[in-house]
Amino acid sequence: MADPNDNNAIITVDLTKHFDQVTALDRLSLKVRSGLIFGLLGPNGAGKSTTIKILTTLLDASSGSATIAGFDVAKSPIEVRRRIGYVPQLLSADGALTAIENLNLSARLYGLHGGELKVRVSEALSFSGLDTVANKPVKTYSGGMIRRLEIAQATLHYPEVLFLDEPTIGLDPVARKTVWERLKDLRRSRRTTILITTHDMEEVDVLCDELAILDRGRLAVTGSPGELKSRLGAQASLDDVFVHFSGSVMEREGNYRQIRENRSAIHRLE
């Protein structure tokens, strides 16, 4: 196969999205090679969420195109959906259901059934380290357990590409490390291509093979963490890289609605 696209799990060409008067994403052209963990960085409003929503077929682009695992997101959304997993930033596991019920639901929606479903679900339980609490409602879990469950839910069908929106936001340091281990494990054992958005420079350092920084809907820079740091000099940290290329300091707060949603999500778990 001489197709040059073979090595790229994600390709976007001039991807653009307008909301009314606002241009959320402005001619984004990106390539993400298969088997990498790729970080999408940028201040709030830079277009990270918009990009993920378009790539996961939740949102239509205004113009430009995107291809995931060889399929165009606008022309073959179902084929794309078969090949991707998505862990939203908010709480996507259902707190009123147990881990097993959550996994069964996802597995069945991904078209698994019978013996195969059973095998995948039990595999997912041990992958996420939740065997002992599998029959307890998810609302009794810690934040880290929930994240691991969500990753397990999103990978039941062995997706080629996994998207995670702020995968470790709000987690304690130990829980963060276990999530990172799971993601590295997926890259190693299944060669899953993983795209994350993050605000966390330590996460980028630990996890990402390559990254792209977005700024006001445009691609500011892309490269490996090492390359980008060396461009700024020997002592540069990723924080410096971020500030240099996005022209802004790390902003951790979201807008009113995001904060409200995050807090109500946390509240629901208590």
Partner: peptide, 14 residues
Amino acid sequence: RDLGIVHKLLVTPA
């Protein structure tokens, strides 16, 4: 929707 469950369901091929 506020939680993200809708998003999880909609990215499946169902």
